[in-house]
Design a protein around this nucleic acid. Sequence first.
DNA 1: CGCGAGATTGATGGTAATCAACGAACGTGG
DNA 2: CCACGTTCGTTGATTACCATCAATCTCGCG
Lengths: 249, 249
Amino acid sequence: MTFVNYSASIAQSKGRAPIRAEDTAALRGLRLFDGIAEATFADLIAAGYLQFFPPGVTLIRERDPADFLHVVIEGTVELYAGSGGRETTMEFIRPVGAFILAAVLSDQIYLQSARTLTRARILMIPAERVRHWMAQDAGFMRMIVAELARGYRQAIKALKNQKLRTGAERLANWLITQSALQGTPGYVDLDIEKRVLAARLGMTPENLSRALASLAIHGVHSRGALIEIKDPAALAGFAKPDPLVDAPE
Amino acid sequence: MTFVNYSASIAQSKGRAPIRAEDTAALRGLRLFDGIAEATFADLIAAGYLQFFPPGVTLIRERDPADFLHVVIEGTVELYAGSGGRETTMEFIRPVGAFILAAVLSDQIYLQSARTLTRARILMIPAERVRHWMAQDAGFMRMIVAELARGYRQAIKALKNQKLRTGAERLANWLITQSALQGTPGYVDLDIEKRVLAARLGMTPENLSRALASLAIHGVHSRGALIEIKDPAALAGFAKPDPLVDAPE
DNA sequence: CGCGAGATTGATGGTAATCAACGAACGTGG
DNA sequence: CCACGTTCGTTGATTACCATCAATCTCGCG
């Protein structure tokens, strides 16, 4: 895949498109806006922007002050972070998911950067409006608390995954989880590049290659982006899956 | 230190001591209860328990349903987690800190276990009361949101620390941070066992020993629980500290 | 003084990062 | 439509990092 070298500044210029009426109804249906007051929703939408981004666009950069709450409506967004010259993938956000809510709420800087992996439709709401309505609308705040708690538990699970398992084990468990999520027992279809998956799993691309090869003795075989799990029981025996680590929140 | 083999069940038996009047005033002063209504506070306190635990007591166990919100008033509590036969330390909680708020709010099971490292005074509030008042008292909910956001960002930082650094780097940065927190430039006083610190830093005790020895060329020397940082600038040069990873939230 | 838990040191093997080379897939331009 | 070039993925060789097992050391405490 060739990434367009595209600046996110287009999204933060005066050229942003406000949300059109035909989109409003669809947004109102999001679980994210469930139980919030009509006035809250109307104002959030009026202040917000909804637009498409091509793949490879950097949406936010760690260290920047949190100015918008971002919600992924379509496509895949990668959260990543770096320090001391190294870089790693933290999480993937898919519809419908908000990201970096915590920074917005506490009016702090972002701890993570975000870029689109695919063409993606993103809803952006000014941070100030989010904080404003959180204080006014108890229903909205309840939604925020739920989303925060979800993200927090997700992060704890990611930390356990990283500290308690080897690379091959993380891969094996990821395969098991993905196979279930995609509803295709016996198969996993990679919808991201292997290099990106490697970073997500906390390893190098070379190592992912080798880890995948090493799972062959547990019945895992790959042909390009399609990975076959011949013997789910054997793979599980090696992976030792644990809902307190693997289950998505 | 010898840990008492003490069951936490004493805390969950009928023998719990309600909170005495003389303690109420002190609790009211906690930042945790700042801005919440008097009625909320009174009911939380009336339903809660405040008591001392000896060192080594398991307060909660991962996988158990969240029944109490725990707040550390005095002493140190270790959050830890295990999977597939391995175990690691996730975080230390010191006064005044709540732990595992997310599980309480979403009425889910704990992802982490907790045990006292020192004699500790813990405030326990029934989870149901917390959820009840969160919905009633906007001020209380604001406090909860702030605490959740703090924990979330803390977890993200821990994940970055683990994925982006080697063991020796994590140790070096921990020394720099501790030295600042303790207000003793040039020194760090270990108030926990090295084996526990090792788990916290994601390494074995043997490895911590070697990592500490390897920092000697950067001016770090240890005599028992006292660690001297002879040349903070040199150590920082090696550690490459980063507020987006190291700064406590 | 002697015991025991924690800390250290050494030896070894496993796990993972890095550097380098090669092969496969795909898009572009001729 | 093919040739080429770029990017991604794989494989191999080497080194760094880390866990494990075992032995020794230290120190507080009975």
